[in-house]
Amino acid sequence: MAETVVETKVETSLGTPWNVVVHDDPVNLMSYVTMVFQRVFGFSKQKAQSHMLEVHHKGRSIVWTGARERAEFYVQQLHEYLLLATLERAE
């Protein structure tokens, strides 16, 4: 019996990392943004301040990279604190 081989090209995005990006906002206080990073990501105060300063000086900071579902969860949490946060595919 002839054997039929079906080739399937599976394109999965499961392994594609996603970035959680926080954008600069002149209204949110620096101390508030630091507190939010500590709460949402469990960052140390030093790491939270480092990301906050990156947002402040460079306009944005990638605060987390990983699986899509988790990234969506973090973006939602950041929006609950009224931070400007987006999800984007990691390069």
Binding site: E72, V75, Q76, H79, L84, A85, T86, L87, E88
Partner: peptide
């Protein structure tokens, strides 16, 4: 209610508007 992604993520944006 700022946008959580750019316009290329249309399905995500729709879900966000509906549920989040």
């Amino acid at each position: 209610f700022s946008s959580p992604a750019d316009s290329s993520e249309s399905q995500f944006l729709n879900d966000w508007a509906e549920y989040v």
